[in-house]
Amino acid sequence: MTSALRALDQEYGGGACRDACVALLGWANPLLDAGSSGRVLHRLQVAIADLHNLAGWASFDLGLLESAHRHFGRAMDLARASGNSALEANIHYRMGRVHLHYELAEDALASFRFGLPIAQASGSTLAVSILHANEAWALAKMGAERQALRQFARAQDEFDRAETEEAPPWARFFDLADLVSIGGMVHTELARTCDVKYARTAIPLLTRAISAGGQDASRSQSFRLAALAVNYLVQNEPERACEVGERAMAVSGPIRSARTRDRMRPLKQEADRLRGNEAADQLSARLGVFMRSQGAA
């Protein structure tokens, strides 16, 4: 059931699954008091921790931060009790992404770095790759150019090593398209914080991720399209940015997620920077309407 709810989250946003997650937890949590022991108890703890982790992520996607932190905290307690360090590392990744979304790059970096030794101890190179990739993203937001590029290279190396690894359900989202996508995000942030030259490398990375992205990952596609449009604006190509931005809004429309609206803000900032250009002004106006309508929804 958690797997089915996770698929709904990836395709339609946290609003499509959060209530069901909370309802399922109301049934699942009492099972921990059923007197199970040993292997059965550990499997139960992992299953319920995984569900709390998803409930936290869906809550975050809707902007419900108090609920997100509460579910992540419960997930962490259960993951530790079960001894599942790969899941524990994944929860640190997700808590870091909350900080990253709200521009708390240093806090995000601390979460990712706290999770790294736990991921390494778990033996999951995929978990290590996820944390290194997101560490690079946080560093890029901070303008730490060399460190960001170095950590992303480490993420690529670990991902290559993880090819034959059987990913646990909470980490299966992290495929090649996602890795390439984060590379595009790293270069997008560097284009904005360090040097516009990084827009030239961000564009092919994001284009590749968009081409490889599955039909069941609409939210991720909306993020990638918005970032691609940002890079076209950084390169002073507002006509192309307008075209891609329209695609991003079209993909985002049916998704029940506050993050899709929030991730349009950098795009609007860049469009406003080119105020006076017809295409940039058109994009800014369209984004304003879209963000207001999504906020009302």
Rank of each mutant, 00 (worst) to 15 (best):
A105S: 12
G123R: 08
A144F: 13
M185D: 10
L149E: 10
R172V: 12
D61F: 01
H92S: 08
G183I: 01
L126I: 09
N84C: 11
S67G: 08
D77L: 10
L149M: 07
D195N: 15
H92Y: 15
L62G: 01
P168H: 14
H92A: 08
N134L: 09
Q156L: 05
H71I: 05
G184V: 04
H71G: 03
R74T: 07
E166C: 14
L104P: 02
P117Q: 13
E166Y: 14
L62S: 01
F159H: 00
E106M: 12
H187Q: 11
L131W: 05
R161K: 10
D160E: 13
H92D: 11
L62A: 01
A144G: 05
S181V: 04
D77G: 07
A138P: 03
T188G: 04
H69W: 15
L190Q: 05
D175A: 07
E145Y: 08
F60G: 00
A81G: 07
Q151V: 02
A162E: 07
A144P: 04
W57G: 00
E165Q: 13
E66A: 11
A75S: 12
A121V: 13
A58S: 07
A191K: 01
G83M: 13
F112P: 00
M185S: 06
D178C: 05
E135C: 09
S111Y: 14
Q151K: 07
G143V: 11
L62V: 01
H92E: 15
D160G: 03
A138V: 03
S124V: 05
L104T: 11
L109T: 02
I130L: 09
R146C: 09
A136C: 06
L190N: 02
I182A: 01
D107E: 15
Y102K: 01
W57F: 13
M185T: 02
S85K: 13
E189N: 05
L116H: 03
E66I: 08
E158V: 02
D61N: 03
A108E: 10
A155K: 00
L131P: 00
R146V: 10
A191S: 15
R113Y: 13
L139K: 00
A58T: 06
A162S: 09
P117N: 12
L149S: 02
H69A: 11
F112T: 02
Y93C: 09
R97P: 02
Q151M: 10
H99R: 14
K197H: 15
A89L: 08
A171F: 09
W170I: 03
M185A: 10
E189F: 03
A86K: 02
H187Y: 13
E165L: 04
L190T: 03
S59K: 01
L62Q: 05
G123I: 05
A68M: 09
F159S: 00
Y93N: 11
F174M: 04
K197S: 15
I91V: 08
R150C: 10
G56L: 06
N134A: 06
A171M: 12
D175L: 07
T125I: 06
S124N: 06
G63P: 00
E135G: 01
